[in-house]
Computed example of a mutant assay.
Amino acid sequence: MNLTELTARLHAIRDRNDWQQFHSPKNLAMAASVEMAELVEIFQWLSEDQSRQLAPEQLQHAGQEVGDIVLYLLLLCSELGIDMEQAVRAKLADSERRFAP
């Protein structure tokens, strides 16, 4: 996944629709949270086993919500000047150190 390319494509959509005025860090974080809630809604009331065996349409819907979340996070990183790949790598390295056997 090329995050630079994805971000450029997102910016093109944003700019074409004059949405940058709405893309404050606060708004983008809130939008990502709303999309996360939509992902959670797919699993609401499912058992643990059911949540691991989604029907094809539920799995597709979950993928769409994951995509929405990632895209909002890419926009948020862009607005804040955060290098998402570097942030994820740093967090993973921290988890590896903290939770190593």
Rank of each mutant, 00 (worst) to 15 (best):
V34W: 08
R9Y: 04
W45C: 00
V70G: 08
Q60E: 14
D15Q: 13
S78K: 13
H11A: 03
L39W: 13
E65Y: 14
A55K: 14
A37M: 14
R52W: 15
S51A: 10
I69L: 01
E5P: 00
M1K: 15
F43E: 02
R52C: 03
W45E: 06
I82A: 01
S47H: 12
K91R: 15
E41R: 14
I69A: 04
L46I: 00
P101D: 04
A93I: 08
A31R: 14
V88H: 08
E35F: 07
A55D: 06
Q60C: 00
L73K: 10
N27P: 08
V66L: 14
Q44W: 13
A87F: 07
R14E: 11
L75Q: 15
Q53W: 12
L73V: 06
V40M: 09
Q20E: 14
I69S: 04
R52F: 11
T7Y: 02
D18N: 13
L3E: 12
R98V: 02
E79Q: 15
Q50I: 01
L59I: 02
N2Y: 02
M84H: 07
C77T: 07
L6W: 14
L6V: 08
I42K: 14
F99G: 05
Q50R: 13
R14F: 00
W19T: 03
D18A: 05
P25F: 06
C77N: 10
E57S: 08
E41P: 05
L10C: 03
D68M: 10
R9D: 12
A31L: 11
D68R: 14
E48W: 09
R52V: 01
Q58P: 04
L59D: 12
L28C: 00
S47D: 12
Y72P: 05
Q86I: 02
A32W: 07
A32S: 05
G81C: 07
M84Q: 09
Q86C: 01
P101R: 14
I69V: 08
Q86R: 15
F99S: 04
A29P: 06
H61F: 03
L10F: 07
A8G: 04
E48T: 11
D83Q: 13
P101I: 01
A62G: 00
A100K: 14
Q86A: 05
S24C: 06
M30C: 05
A12K: 15
S78E: 10
F99M: 07
R52H: 09
N27S: 10
C77G: 06
A29S: 03
M30G: 06
E96A: 05
P101T: 01
M1S: 09
Y72S: 00
A55Q: 06
S33R: 14
E65M: 04
F43G: 00
L54H: 13
H11D: 10
L71M: 08
R97C: 00
Q58E: 09
A90Q: 10
P56L: 08
A93P: 08
I42A: 01
M84A: 03
Q53S: 10
W19Q: 11
